[in-house]
Each structure stands twice: as structure tokens, then as C-alpha cells.
Design a protein around this nucleic acid. Structure first.
Length: 517
RNA sequence: GCCGCGGUAGUAUAGCCCGGCCAAGUAUGCGGGCCUCUCGAGCCCGUGACCCGGGUUCAAAUCCCGGCCGCGGCACCA
């Protein structure tokens, strides 16, 4: 019987979600990439293409490339610190990349391709005002748009002038020739290069060295080919871009990689949009990118969500084209199952109420309590003085206490309640064994010695609100380390965010962030 | 408005390409029970879905058409 359960359990574990096969994938030949814009930290939504691309590359023993797409120093100006922040988040997620590229450092490459494209008659310089182009385009007269009819020679000459800085911002662009009557107007002769006055908006990496900048569609398309990307995994919002880029590939005689589009990934009850984060940061003045209310990778990490959880949830959601809205309960449950066997248990009382216990049959007793009920995670000792002592219990447990009730102080002894007040609870020693507690159907509650304890503050993210709870923790908490994910017994899983050691050992103060039940 | 893509339980996902084995599987949530020195974990039972309408077929979640709903794109952003 037991064996059967065991087997069923193992089978269930083996049903681990697998990624569907990639179309046209050949083992050892798959090359994928993650191409973030380093203008912000990455969040769960961005982590999706990163994790999927990386996992597919691994699955086929291929190559995974990290590429920073920082070709807009004006509207989406890169943040110098974002490059490293993104690398850190990826490393934390367990993602390793075989090659790394930064587009702003590859400008000559794009210029070269642009020249070839012009030579092939696939692009032209448009030095007319934007409204003029739009008029021709929207009236279906794009075939007769004068700049489009220019000779290759003239285009090359104008292109050189662009590069030399003869045009100011908005005065000229290089356009890729597409189907002039494509049903989607935005596809018609899309812009490959535009001019950005980098003396006014310098690029954090290359300053004002360049004024002619490739657009996303040009740079990404060129790099995907040059770097030998075989499979592109990207969100659905890029569908039209795929259509646009294929025109470039046709001009160049390149083969377009396989593309997989997936829907959006939202995390219910968490802040995910850049603007909302900035709003909060602005309003409170102190919110950081790793604010535990944010669905940034840094925010989730700080909250005690483990990398494995994020990877699993992304693999579980897979590559469907529909949007997915993950509930936090689901994420929490997954995280709990990973973290539970490794998390030390600590006793913390929130909103402490003093408990005076008399008639203790000892002068001093040391309780040795394991850090985990099942796993071997070591133990700690808690000293209780006698014949009378003061402890703290949680105010939330007050409702369990009535005169005459038997209550067990977890992992220690049983008491009989004598008097319950809001300021003080009085009790007397009853017995020590757990069996005795069971016999009286005693409630088991956590407790903290009054003589030695640490101050605890818990930050609880709840949607837009970050509430705080104050409490006291058992002495062992003083040696907890920052980053440790543990469980406050009968309270929930938390991550230790700060450990502030005071003058005396006994006045340690810790700040924890609530993760989930 | 114009282009495009989707719609399986509260949430997520499997099945859809190659119709029948699907009166639809799994996880989570929810309800109940057991177990446990935690309101955690574990175990058992239950709950609950194929957007709607036509068509094709002996047979449709799976194929076709229409509708409805949702999402994305329509930048000299990525």
C-alpha cells in the first residue's frame, strides 16, 4: 500500500512539464537569443523570452546569446546601470549565455549592411518631411513617391551625407522598400535608420559618436541573421515586426529564422508596468526597482520568490499565444513547495503580549528545538528561567485563551491560563509532555522569551500597499543572514531583508519581507 | 477605423495539426476528512471548463462558416 503511494507520487513528479518541440530544430544547431533594451530592469514578462530561449537552446544543446538592443538614445534612452542589472538578474535566474553583444557597439556593422541594401535597390533615403511620405503612403501612391524612385547612386550619395552629419534630426531617414500597397500601412517602406542628435541626447556607451541610428527592426533583423539565430521567441506584439523584417531578408537573400510568438504574462495583484512603478517611486520617494510589490525579477527575489519558481512558472505557461494571468496564489504555492524543505522555522510573535508563567519546576531549563520538523536543518536552544518567567505571545492568539484553558507553548511545555488581560496574561505551569497537551486538546502557540529576543519588522506587500507589522522574534533570529528564506511559524514564509545588529547582541533588529503563507 | 492573432474549470495548462480511446487529464484555488508540537508540509474525498450558433460526419473540444468576446499592431520605440 505504502509502495503504491510512493510510486504514484514519483510518477506525478515525473510528469514535469516539458516544452513542446521547436519547429525545424536540429540538435546542436539551435541558436536563440534574449534581446532586452537596457532602459530598465527586467520583470517577469521579460523573463519569459529569456527563460524560454535559454531552455530551448539547452534542450537542443545549442547556443544562447544575450544582446542588448540600445539603439535609441533619445526616446528609450539606455540606463548605464541597467546593462549590469540585467546580467545579474539573468545569472540569478540560472541563465548563462555563450555570447554577448551590445548593438550600440556594432554600428559600423549596420552601416555596412545598409550600404549593401541600398546597392541592391532595397532601400532609399527619404529626405522629405514625414507628412509628405504619409500622404503618399495613405493615398496608395507610394510607388510614385519621388525619393523612392531615386537611383542607387543618388541613394548612396545621400546615405553618405547622412552619415557625415549633413542632416539634422528628422530631416532624413533610410527606408526599406516593401510592398507599397501592403494591407498594413505601417509595413509600407518602414524606417531602417533615422537621425538622432546625440550632442543633445548622448548615448551612455558611445556618447555622440553616431548620429545615424538603426531602428529596432533593422538592427534586430540584421543581428538575428549575422549571429546565426535559428529560432526567435518573442511576444505577440512583435508579429507585425516579423512581417516587416521579412522584406529586409528578401532583399538580402537571407533566410528568416523560425519565430514563435507568445502572449503576455501578467502577475495578478502585482505591479508590472514601468509607468506604475515610476508613479509609486515618485509618490513615496523611496520605492526602488526591487520593491517587493513590483513584479521585477529583483522585486520577486527580494520577496523570497526563488529563481526555480520563476523558471517553472514560465515553463508551465509555455508558449501559447494567449495572454496568461498568473495568480499569486499559484506562484506562491509553487514557491512554497520549493522553499519549504529548506526553510528554517523561527518563532515570532506579532504585536507581542507579555505572558507571566509561575510555578515552573526548574531554576533554568534549556529547550533544544530543531529548525525544521522534518528535515535535518540543525537546532537552536532557548533558555527559560524559573520558577517564574515572562514570555511573549502574539496578540492574535489572545482569542484562544480563556481562564482555565490549557495551552502548549510550542516545543516546550504546557500552561494553564489563570487570567487574560490586554496588558498581561497570567498562567501557571501545567505539564511538559506533548501527550499531555494532546489529552487536553491544547492549542499550540509560538512564544518568545522576554529576556532575550530580537525586534522584528515584517513588510507585507499587498497590491499597491506595503504594510508593516511589528513583533519580537526568538534569539536565534539574531544570527539569521540577509537573504535567508525562512518560515515564521504559524505566520508564513518570509525573506530576511535586513539584519541590524545593535550595540548589544540582545538588541538585534531584523526586517523581513512576507512572501506567502 | 484598418490590419493581425486568439478563446478548455476562479487561475494556469494538457488534448486541437493527424476527428472516435475525452460524459475532457494535471496543478493551484475552494469545500470536507485524516495526519502533524505551525494557520506550513503530507494524505484521502469532493467541487468545477471545451465562448455562442450553424454546417460536414456514423462520430467534433478537435474540421468548415458566421457571430460574440479578448488581445496585439497601426512610431524617425523596443
Amino acid at each position: 500500500m505504502l509502495e503504491e503511494w510512493e510510486r504514484a507520487r514519483r510518477e506525478r513528479a515525473a510528469v514535469e512539464k516539458k516544452l513542446p518541440p521547436l519547429p525545424g530544430a536540429v540538435e546542436g544547431k539551435v541558436v536563440t537569443r534574449f534581446a532586452p533594451n537596457p532602459d530598465f530592469a527586467i520583470h517577469l514578462g521579460n523573463a519569459r523570452p529569456a527563460v524560454l530561449s535559454y531552455e530551448y537552446a539547452r534542450m537542443y544543446k545549442g547556443k544562447f546569446i544575450l544582446r542588448f538592443e540600445d539603439t535609441d538614445p533619445r526616446i528609450k534612452a539606455p540606463l548605464p546601470e541597467a546593462y549590469e542589472a540585467i546580467r545579474e538578474d539573468l545569472r540569478w535566474l540560472g541563465i548563462r549565455w555563450d555570447e554577448e553583444y551590445i548593438q550600440s557597439l556594432r554600428m559600423e556593422v549596420y552601416y555596412e549592411v545598409a550600404r549593401k541594401l541600398i546597392e541592391r535597390g532595397g532601400a532609399y533615403v527619404d529626405d522629405m518631411p514625414g507628412e509628405e511620405f504619409r500622404r503618399y503612403r495613405d493615398e496608395g501612391r507610394l510607388e510614385r513617391y519621388p525619393p523612392r524612385l531615386r537611383s542607387v547612386e543618388d541613394n548612396l550619395e545621400l546615405w553618405d551625407k547622412m552619415l557625415e552629419g549633413a542632416f539634422g534630426e528628422g530631416e532624413a531617414v533610410l527606408r526599406v522598400k516593401t510592398d507599397p500597397s501592403h494591407p498594413d500601412p505601417s509595413v509600407r517602406d518602414w524606417v531602417a535608420f533615422r537621425i538622432i542628435d546625440t550632442s543633445r541626447s548622448p548615448h551612455p556607451l558611445v556618447g555622440d559618436r553616431y548620429v545615424v541610428w538603426p531602428t529596432y527592426n533593422f538592427a534586430a533583423a540584421v543581428d538575428d541573421h549575422l549571429l546565426g539565430i535559428t529560432h526567435v521567441l518573442r511576444a505577440r506584439e512583435h508579429m507585425q515586426n516579423t512581417v516587416k523584417q521579412i522584406f529586409l531578408y528578401k532583399h538580402m537573400g537571407w533566410q528568416y529564422p523560425h519565430v514563435i510568438h507568445f502572449g503576455r504574462l501578467k502577475l495578478e495583484g502585482m505591479i508590472m508596468s514601468k509607468s506604475a512603478m515610476k508613479e509609486i517611486a515618485g509618490a513615496e520617494g523611496l520605492a526602488r526597482i526591487d520593491d517587493p510589490r513590483f513584479a521585477t525579477i529583483a522585486g520577486l527575489r527580494r520577496r523570497g520568490i526563488v529563481a526555480e519558481t520563476i523558471k517553472k512558472i514560465i515553463l508551465d505557461v509555455g508558449v501559447k499565444q494567449t495572454d496568461a494571468s498568473i495568480s499569486y496564489a499559484n506562484l506562491a504555492s509553487l514557491n512554497r513547495s520549493i522553499v519549504d524543505p529548506k526553510a528554517r522555522r523561527y518563532m515570532v510573535v506579532v504585536d507581542p503580549i507579555p505572558l507571566l508563567v509561575v510555578d515552573l519546576p526548574w531554576e533554568k531549563k534549556v529547550f533544544e528545538i530543531p529548525f525544521h520538523p522534518g528535515q535535518n536543518l540543525g537546532s537552536r536552544r532557548i533558555v527559560v528561567e524559573g520558577p517564574q518567567t515572562t514570555l511573549y505571545i502574539s496578540a492574535s492568539d489572545l482569542s484562544l485563551l480563556r481562564r482555565g484553558a490549557i495551552v502548549r507553548l510550542m516545543e516546550a511545555f504546557n500552561i494553564e491560563i489563570v487570567e487574560v488581560g490586554r496588558e498581561l496574561v497570567k498562567a501557571r505551569y501545567h505539564s511538559e509532555s506533548l501527550e499531555e497537551a494532546r489529552r487536553h486538546r491544547a492549542q499550540i502557540i509560538q512564544w518568545v522569551p522576554a529576556k532575550e529576543n530580537v525586534e522584528v519588522e515584517v513588510l507585507k506587500p499587498e497590491g499597491l500597499v506595503l504594510s508593516r507589522e511589528q513583533g519580537l522574534g526568538e534569539p536565534a533570529l539574531a544570527s539569521a543572514s540577509v537573504g535567508e528564506i525562512c518560515q515564521f511559524v504559524r505566520y508564513g514564509f518570509v525573506r530576511i531583508d535586513q539584519v541590524l545588529r545593535g550595540e548589544s547582541e540582545s538588541r538585534t533588529r531584523i526586517v523581513a519581507i512576507y512572501a506567502h503563507d
